[in-house]
Nucleic acid binder design. Structure first.
Lengths: 336, 336
DNA sequence: CTGTTAGCGCATTCAA
DNA sequence: TTGAATGCGCTAACAG
């Protein structure tokens, strides 16, 4: 009746390092060293006792306390604009799995377009992460570095900053292959559907397309600005002059899907009747029968492997500044 | 030349609460209270001085230290099996945005099928989160509670545990509507394509379909077990007896897309020629022209709003045990 | 309302 | 190698 613990399920305090040390009959310092990941001077005898004590007590180090003392928390931040593009599904699940596989946990930060991201970020645990993976392009490297305690930033948004390492998809390569494919099939004129043209990555893509088209003597009829979405592709498709256009290149698969649907309506086929169509990103949805869109993309596993390698490397991320390029390639399907 | 700081960019230590207190001419306790989110007794005068001092120093509280002392870190964990279903895109972007909007950061945990999740979890910062949102069904409520320091678990995986609050989609409602729709259109026989049948949620769905079909006198020709994926729907579609089957109900939109593609091949239309087709989840992709699949789903905003309301509520999650039901409804499109 | 004191749990000096 | 002592930065309890 007057049981002070009421019906609460026995809030037994978790064992701390002191408990382990006491049970093992050593000082806390010894216990700390014995349980450290790095090699620390401890006699084999005592190390053994400590480990056994920790085991029997079910001891778990408090990662907050460890972080406070050692400035490392086995935590990684992933900064994104948002996660609602089709290509995100293919990437983040894999990335998450691989990062966890090296023993780190992931804190996801959605920067969004508006964003007083910096203030939000610095007030939270995310400020103390061991590394930040930057996919968003809403901030330059310098300000991103400012958002984290230790400058350990990995740029994955296409920005090459001398102060930070990066892994970038070599999109130019895939674009050249795709345009060469079109040229080989007799295409003489083309239209380009783009995404957010303020993005540096997008600007680089556009430049690659222009150069490749020019090289093959393909006439660039125009550039229409969309926003990567299916809806924008669907809408812009009205402005395609099917009489004159040999190929439509889109900087996202979703836009290409919109274009396909707009022009398939008149011809019940799985590709546009009058022009060739190329997407971008090689999302897994292009494996669905209804959208057999020729695309451009990198091997996601290779891309993620590079990221994890750098994360897990011996060199502190903050001192590292290697610029890795992952190749992309053209992936032919029915529409190309 | 012998500058001890070398060329390092001036590693000025971040100002701490002590610095702020000193500059403001008050004790650290006062500074702490003045900067606290909760109302704490401080004279207006000193509060003002503290805030000004913090401002001029550019002070940011160290969330690790705060967490260590106060046992609360403004951090939420999201536990998922994985994030590669189409329906995930619609949900997690919104959820992430809304959780950040209430000032909390999100740590994503991918449990996966294998999973010594518990050990991984407890060794990281995630163990100390204020709340865990559980989407995975690879663990029951009791063991999930054990995975977090404070028992603050919100079940979102369809499991109703008396010890934890939950937000669940009332799938039965939408299923009844969908089946009624079919019955109204003269359907007399149906086939059910299911996902992972070990899942409790899936079992409940199947039961709902059986009951609804029986109620309308629709003959259930069989149940085929898939895995929610497009590929499984595509494969199982071969086993549909188009002569006898009035409708095919799938427990995911992706499977329905596979079925549609398998049977559209023979009839160049945007729906199967011989039977009606119903999906599940109402993913945004069903708004693409090629997959106008009638579906069942909840209002994502309402669903997320309930989650955030509970997270942000005054009642400690660990003491809360409300069971919220969010309605689903039938969403008619071309195939239904 | 205020300041002092004592932790939170761990890692790391330093002297032995 | 060891252990005592100190500090990471902050919040909470206490006495005033």
């Amino acid at each position: 009746m007057t049981d002070p613990t009421r019906d609460a399920p026995a809030p037994v305090p978790a064992p701390t390092l002191s408990d382990v040390a006491a049970l093992a009959g050593v000082s806390r310092a010894i216990a700390s060293r014995a349980l450290s990941a790095q090699p620390r001077p401890v006699s084999a005898d005592k190390r053994e006792r400590v480990l056994r004590a920790a085991e029997t007590l079910g001891f778990r180090p408090n990662s907050l306390a460890r972080g406070l003392a050692s400035k490392t928390v086995n935590l990684v931040a992933i900064l994104v604009n948002h996660i609602h593009d089709l290509s995100d599904l293919d990437l983040f699940d894999l990335l998450l799995a691989e990062i966890q596989a090296i023993g780190k946990q992931v804190i996801f930060i959605r920067v969004g377009a508006g964003g007083d991201a910096e203030s939000f970020l610095r007030d939270g645990v995310a400020y103390h992460v061991d590394a930040a993976l930057v996919f968003t392009d809403f901030a330059d490297a310098a300000s991103v570095r400012r958002m984290f305690r230790n400058n350990a930033v990995l740029m994955l948004n296409g920005h090459h900053d001398p102060g930070a390492p990066s892994v970038t998809m070599d999109e130019d390569q895939g674009i050249r292959e795709a345009v060469a494919d079109a040229a080989g099939k007799g295409v003489r004129s083309a239209l380009l559907l783009t995404g957010r043209t303020m993005s540096l990555v997008e600007q680089a893509r556009i430049a690659s397309y222009r150069a490749a088209l020019a090289r093959h003597g393909i006439d660039l009829l125009g550039e229409l600005a969309g926003d990567y979405s299916y809806a924008s592709g669907r809408a812009l498709a009205d402005r395609i002059d099917v009489e004159r256009t040999g190929a439509v290149f889109c900087t996202s698969d979703a836009m290409a899907m919109g274009v396909l649907d707009a022009h398939r309506a008149h011809f019940p086929q799985h590709r546009p009747a009058r022009f060739r169509l190329y997407g971008f990103d090689n999302v897994s949805l292009t494996q669905f029968d209804a959208y057999p869109i020729s695309s451009i993309g990198a091997d996601k596993r290779a891309y993620v492997a590079q990221i994890v390698r750098i994360l897990n490397g011996p060199a502190p991320l903050a001192q590292n500044s290697e610029q890795v390029l992952v190749p992309t390639r053209f992936v032919p399907r029915l529409t190309g």
